[in-house]
Amino acid sequence: MINGAFGAGKTTIANRLVNEIENSMIYDPEEIGYMLRNVIPIDIKRTESVTGDFQDLDLWKEITVDMGKKLITKYNINLIVPMTIRKIEYFHYIYNGFKSIDEQTYPFCLNASKETIYERLRLRGEEEGNWCYQQTDKCLEAFNQSDFGEYIDTERKSIDEIIQDLKGKLKHL
């Protein structure tokens, strides 16, 4: 599991890790969220997700874990799971669900300063002030207040350095 604010480097790191870790694939729970956003009726979305965040939909957590189990069972594959989860109860639900499927489930949280995250968001073409930007403070605060796994500093580090750091931590777990 690779957690972090939007712009922390999750997707970049996940895309590199899939080439570094044998028998692995990227499994992005955002895809589950997009699907639910498209199929759940508006009145249910208004009740369960008043914030507009698909993670607040009850089914999102459940389907995320269930699909992970199906992927691991069907393909006997290692999942690399990039996602931004700032609500600790959602993190625990998904982490414990994955851990019950595969004991070798390791949560990492990529960290960077607000300024670095904003710069990365700008560089990837995000419109300043959009939803990703609006989540930055909430994510950074949540990551400082709760334990979201093994933290990896991405500030002023190359992708190669971050990958080596992450792989080093995996060897020691």
Rank of each mutant, 00 (worst) to 15 (best):
N111V: 04
N78I: 03
D153A: 12
L36Y: 06
N15D: 15
L36T: 00
I44M: 13
N96T: 01
R16M: 15
I42S: 15
F108E: 06
I101A: 00
R46F: 03
V39W: 12
G129S: 07
D153R: 12
K70L: 06
K70Y: 04
L59N: 10
S24H: 14
Y90K: 09
R86G: 00
D147E: 07
E20K: 14
Y75H: 06
K87N: 04
F54Y: 13
Y151W: 03
K157R: 09
I26F: 10
K99W: 06
I163F: 15
K61Q: 12
I77Q: 05
K114N: 10
A112F: 09
D28R: 15
A142P: 01
L17N: 15
E62R: 12
C109G: 04
E126C: 09
G149S: 04
N78A: 04
I85H: 01
N23C: 06
G33Y: 10
F98N: 05
P29T: 15
I94D: 01
T64I: 04
N111E: 08
M1W: 11
T51S: 13
Q164W: 02
E62L: 08
S146A: 12
P107I: 05
E48R: 02
E48N: 01
D137Y: 05
Y133C: 02
D102I: 05
F148W: 08
I26C: 13
H172F: 11
S24V: 13
C139M: 05
I2F: 08
N144H: 09
W131F: 09
K167P: 01
A112M: 07
A14T: 14
R16P: 00
D28M: 14
E48A: 06
Q134N: 12
S158M: 10
H92W: 13
L140I: 13
Y34G: 08
M1A: 14
I159Q: 14
K169D: 08
Y90W: 11
E62S: 11
K70W: 02
R46C: 00
I152K: 02
I21S: 14
K45F: 00
T73C: 08
R120T: 00
V18I: 15
D66V: 00
K87C: 00
T116R: 07
